[in-house]
Write a protein that binds this DNA or RNA. Structure first.
Length: 162
DNA sequence: TACTCGATTAACT
DNA sequence: GTTAATCGAGTAG
């Protein structure tokens, strides 16, 4: 279950990879919504995003943290730890736990025959349980660094930072 | 072709 | 609090 996200919205968002125009890496962000955007960060970790918005308006949502529901024993093997709150409480961590890499880049996030897709589990989160905050790790983004574009579930133990 | 540095994490002091 | 780990996209020349 997804518990923490960040939004990267439009070509004018200085924190977004798309702010300096279309490149081979971020090209998927300029396409239709509903596709995975996976990239390698710091040479070690992958980050998982969902492309959103319309064609030619580059936007994506970074999945920053999830709460494990099934397959926890496999996540423990992938993450080399048995500490539950450490399995998926960060963008790099959850990709390790799920075994996500660039093979998923540009695939549909709604294709139920794919190895990774988003499913509606039919619960509604009350609005007062959703907290807004500044995005993480984007100090270089000028006036965009303080935008409240990070969203997470209140009191959820898997959120990467309070 | 060469250089810089990042939407991070874990392991240090 | 500081830093090492280590890849490749982006950019300058």
């Amino acid at each position: 279950m997804i518990v923490e996200t960040e939004a990267y919205v439009g070509p004018q968002d200085l924190a977004s990879h798309a702010s300096r125009g279309k490149t081979p890496r971020n090209e998927i962000m300029f396409g239709d919504a509903g596709y995975w955007y996976v990239y390698l960060i710091y040479g070690f970790y992958n980050c998982l995003n969902i492309v959103t918005e319309n064609k030619d308006y580059p936007s994506a949502v970074l999945i920053r943290a999830v709460e494990p529901v099934e397959g926890i024993s496999l996540m423990e093997i992938n993450r080399k730890t048995t500490k539950l709150e450490n399995l998926t409480s960060g963008p790099g961590k959850l990709c390790q736990a799920f075994g996500i890499d660039k093979k998923l880049n540009c695939l549909s996030c709604l294709d139920k025959d794919s190895t990774l897709f988003i499913a509606d589990i039919g619960i509604t989160i009350p609005k007062n349980k959703i907290k807004k905050a500044k995005r993480v790790g984007v100090d270089y983004a000028g006036k965009w660094k303080d935008k409240l574009l990070r969203f997470y579930l209140k009191d959820n133990p898997f959120v990467s930072k309070k």
